[in-house]
Amino acid sequence: MNKLQQLAAPTGRFFLSLIFVTSGLSKITQYEGTQGYMEAMGVPGALLPLVILTEVVGGLAVMLGWKTRYAAFALAGFSALSALLFHADFSDQSEMTSFMKNIALAGGFLVIFAQGAGSYAIDNRNKNES
């Protein structure tokens, strides 16, 4: 594997995860507004702490390559579910774009789930010690 291929995995994990880490952190600072939006969309606002935990911890786990397959699978489901719950108004072009972005993210996370973290991942630490 050449150096470019080795750098592709951590860079890809970083790019895929960054949106979740930043989004989760912004939900903390905009808690009431996010909770109100969720409730307006028919989703219980009481689920917001779980949403924040999923985005921040799951995003950091994929980013660092720790428990990567589990975190990627969880974020794939989260992305698909978010698309269906919050962006399924296909008469609105911006919602359609958001829907497709979430589906694309789910696809990227499913590839990580199938292939593993790749190079420069905490998951590989024990493999190298064997």
Rank of each mutant, 00 (worst) to 15 (best):
S23C: 13
S23A: 15
S23N: 11
G24T: 12
G24C: 11
L25V: 10
L25F: 06
L25I: 12
L25M: 10
S26W: 00
S26L: 09
K27Y: 01
I28T: 04
I28E: 00
I28P: 02
I28Q: 01
I28H: 01
T29P: 15
T29G: 14
Q30L: 11
Q30C: 09
Q30E: 14
Q30A: 12
Q30W: 00
Q30H: 07
E32C: 06
E32R: 03
E32L: 10
E32W: 00
G33T: 00
T34W: 05
T34Y: 04
T34K: 05
Q35G: 10
Q35H: 09
G36S: 15
G36T: 12
Y37R: 10
Y37E: 02
M38W: 03
E39H: 04
E39C: 11
E39K: 07
A40F: 11
M41Q: 13
M41H: 12
M41I: 07
V43L: 13
V43N: 05
P44H: 08
G45W: 09
A46H: 06
A46R: 05
A46W: 10
L47W: 00
L47T: 14
L47I: 15
L47Y: 00
L48Q: 06
L48Y: 09
P49M: 07
L50S: 14
L50N: 08
V51P: 01
V51S: 03
V51M: 02
I52W: 04
I52Y: 08
I52M: 08
I52S: 07
V56Y: 05
V56M: 03
V56H: 06
V57Y: 03
V57I: 15
V57P: 13
V57R: 00
V57S: 10
V57H: 04
G58E: 03
G58N: 03
G58L: 05
G59P: 06
G59F: 02
L60R: 02
L60N: 04
L60K: 02
L60C: 10
A61W: 01
A61P: 03
A61K: 01
A61V: 02
V62Q: 02
V62A: 04
L64F: 13
G65S: 07
G65A: 07
W66T: 11
K67N: 14
K67Y: 07
